[in-house]
């Protein structure tokens, strides 16, 4: 089998880290929203009083947001 050279157009693709950022940002935002809701309607899980959804959602949103901005299309 022959193996041609790599197509240079692939260098313009969106970064994998951008996809990572979008997924964590969106998931984080959903969980963060749920965390706010849970201040008034706490779930029946153990240690719900620590509000894990609120804090974890905030952390994921910040992490995802950073990756989206850092690796956004056209950023080079």
């Amino acid at each position: 089998m022959t193996t041609p050279h790599v197509d240079p157009s692939t260098e313009q693709m969106l970064s994998i880290w951008f996809f990572v950022g979008v997924l964590t940002f969106c998931s984080g935002l959903i969980i963060f929203g749920e965390g706010i809701y849970e201040f008034w309607h706490p779930p029946s899980t153990v240690l719900a009083n620590l509000h894990p959804a609120f804090w974890w959602g905030m952390l994921m949103t910040a992490f995802g947001g950073f990756y989206v901005l850092r690796f956004r299309p056209g950023k080079g």
Binding site: I30, I31, G33, E34, P43, T45
Partner: peptide
């Protein structure tokens, strides 16, 4: 997971 993860977090764990 079920012990600690409420709505949203459980979805993340299952995903």
């Amino acid at each position: 997971m079920i012990r600690y993860l409420g709505p949203g977090l459980l979805g993340l764990g299952i995903t």
